[in-house]
Design a protein around this nucleic acid. Structure first.
Lengths: 160, 160
DNA sequence: GTAACTGTAACTATATTGGTTACAGACGAT
DNA sequence: ATCGTCTGTAACCAATATAGTTACAGTTAC
């Protein structure tokens, strides 16, 4: 269906912010982790800000951070913010109204579409950004797991 | 997600064939009901034939019909035949491996993707083409509901 | 004031979907 | 055998969506 990676990138971005606690992240830092261009990230951050999932600060020492606790942001919130509302679309042009099938297939397809969208919602609304971070931790625990209080989070190792 | 109407059109097409019983339908008839070009329909019919959902007959008096009983074809079969396998995609370029989030987010996202895809499958695998026809009938019963045996099914009223 | 940020416009490249014409090949009917 | 009717498929074009890039105005910390 979707050949778009917008949802995957958005989850990645919000997960970085959860990882960073309340430290605002610069679009360039995020872009480095996602391996894309900072403008692509900033565009997406605008959509996420409109959906009240992040807040951004312009100017020096600015950046973006989560607007709520990671446990209060679900993957469905993210999905709604950056992907088109439905899993599939109906006909581009409405079917023939001179055909017994064509005249009513739209109604049936809409019912099916609602069922599918609801099923997706049920899955995604049940996973929070906090959950994603938890499912991430086990792989990183080996290093330490705790960060010094007040220390700036190092997301991408910068070996200049 | 998907801005594609391929699934909707494919369901429409197979519903027409179920409606027509074993009468083979010409791509032009189908195209008229779907309101598109016959070539678009034939392209889709090729995919549906590869998926063993329809069989086509070339030559005069040819056309396409269902390969199995309408009750034995699920919307998930159709979905798999004409749409991309997953509801969303992961990153275009793999995330940074120098980042504790980037290095593992792919694993978590794949798990989520599997859950979503499974949820969609559970919904669609539970609806057959026969079900779609049933949910269509109530709107058409008023005309008659039964067709004379051997009579050619009239799908689109042709007032030339 | 200056340097460091975001927000956003403008442009390009690429991929997918859908529509169209054209034609080779299969096949039923005569 | 050939003729008209179909499918299968190639080769285009147009429209749209995603993604990447440069550039720059506006905001903010210091």
């Amino acid at each position: 269906m979707s050949t778009s990676s917008r949802f995957a990138v958005a989850v990645h971005v919000l997960t970085l912010m959860a990882w960073a606690d309340d430290e605002p992240l610069k679009s360039e830092q995020v872009a480095e982790s996602v391996q894309t261009n900072p403008v692509v990230i900033r565009r997406m951050l605008c959509e996420l800000a409109e959906a009240k999932l992040v807040v951004s600060q312009t100017g020096a020492m600015g950046g973006s951070k989560l607007a709520r606790e990671p446990g209060q942001i679900t993957l469905f919130d993210i999905y709604q913010a950056v992907e088109s509302p439905s899993v599939f679309s109906l006909h581009r042009h409405p079917p023939s109204r001179n055909c017994p099938v064509g005249v009513n297939i739209g109604t049936v397809l809409n019912e099916v579409l609602d069922e599918v969208d609801s099923a997706v919602e049920r899955v995604l609304a049940n996973i929070t950004v906090k959950d994603v971070v938890s499912r991430l931790r086990p792989c990183v625990v080996s290093t330490n797991g705790k960060r010094k209080n007040g220390a700036r989070v190092q997301l991408v190792s910068t070996r200049n």
